[in-house]
Write a protein that binds this DNA or RNA. Structure first.
Lengths: 217, 217
DNA sequence: ATTTATTTTTAGACAAAACTAAAAATAAAA
DNA sequence: TTTTATTTTTAGTTTTGTCTAAAAATAAAT
């Protein structure tokens, strides 16, 4: 098992690694973790000893396979707890982070397996970020049409089928945009219209719209 | 806020304090916490500085008012999490302790308030131990007759009304004893008989029995 | 009331994780 | 290509919580 501090470093490195093609710099980690570069050097050496990162002096840090796997499990736990807090304990999305930062370090495989089941295997956290599975893989669903979603499901808008100015203007006017999360609050059986939530707003859209929006879940 | 270690010491002292009328000894704490007496002395000094315990050299330790309140909040959190694990995540009662030991240290008032609400304000943990409320008080219900409980409720056998040898022998034979937890699994409308669970066994008892058993919930 | 045994405390060390300040390496600029 | 600036590392401390071994206090036994 790893210490709380080690876990936080791994998480920070995973996060920084995404936005820098080369190795992660000591300074960047220090900035991310609100600590000093010298502390980072110390810890990175320790993580390197344990084969969680690959590190050569002055050359930056890379996560090893086990390091990445470990970091992804912490992210998984963090995001599952966020879902729990919002869905079950009526936290709002802006209140969950601090508590999830603590809960993510609880050590128990059974706890996470059962929590995942209890939450009905959510694919995204309340901010729309994907939740890695037990093996560290993201569920990368192919895009589908919004019209294929059922009540309660949600996804991210990744494209449109109809690219006419009229349609895009309509989307714009209604605050429906690329990259935004759309949740299907209700689906009318009669006309297949949907009540959706996106960008904090709730609105009803017709099937003419739903069949022209691509979603990734 | 208090450190993980401080919280564990407070909890241990609270626990030991119940079974010793005088101050809690250094050695007893060391035994309870699987550590050395010298470490206990160090920590007890620190807790005394912070006015969480009353401590005079060689005289044993007593919890102060704030110390006891703090310890009770940790017990509250521990037991609420145990209920969560058993009721929601299908842990069995013997699997919960280790995980609850970790969860009890999560710091968030809202988390506990909401968890309590989510669990519908349980009064006892899965082992039958009472859960202190937010102010550190136990819900000390007056004793009632077992016959007053409805389906799903439970309590501890604290006394009997009929003290005849016949009745006590009957209880003995059926493994119904003082201090044991009794849970009402079902109540028959027709004859007011009850299906109860106690000491791992399930049995049906007549109203002649239920009106002669005192329960504390 | 001494001696003996037990408990408790002190003193000194250690490991983890952080810090400051100075030295070394690398990158940028003239 | 030197010089200058920036980044990174080392060296030496600090804090928290623990330990061992020895000293001091208390309790038990003769």
């Amino acid at each position: 098992m790893f210490s709380l501090s080690e876990e936080n470093y791994l998480k920070a490195i995973l996060h920084l690694q995404k936005t820098s093609k080369s190795g992660v710099s000591t300074n960047a980690i220090a900035e991310e973790m609100q600590t000093k570069a010298s502390s980072v050097t110390d810890m990175v050496k320790k993580l390197s000893e344990k084969d969680l990162v690959i590190y050569k002096k002055y050359q930056g840090v890379y996560l090893s396979d086990t390091g990445r796997k470990t970091a992804l499990q912490i992210v998984r736990k963090h995001r599952l707890w966020e879902v729990f807090l919002v869905d079950k304990l009526s936290f709002s999305w802006d209140e969950v982070h601090e508590v999830a930062e603590q809960l993510e370090h609880i050590k128990s495989d059974k706890l996470i397996t059962e929590l995942d089941k209890f939450l009905e295997f959510p694919k995204r956290d309340p901010h729309g970020d994907p939740i890695p599975d037990a093996k560290g893989n993201f569920h990368v669903a192919n895009k589908t049409l919004l019209s294929n979603l059922s009540k309660g499901e949600r996804g991210t808008l990744v494209g449109v089928k109809d690219t006419s100015t009229e349609f895009l203007k309509y989307l714009d006017k209604n605050n429906i945009a690329l990259g935004k999360t759309i949740e299907v609050l209700d689906k009318e059986e009669f006309d297949e219209s949907m009540l959706i939530q996106t960008g904090g707003k709730t609105l009803r859209i017709s099937p003419m719209v739903t069949v022209n929006i691509f979603i990734k879940q």
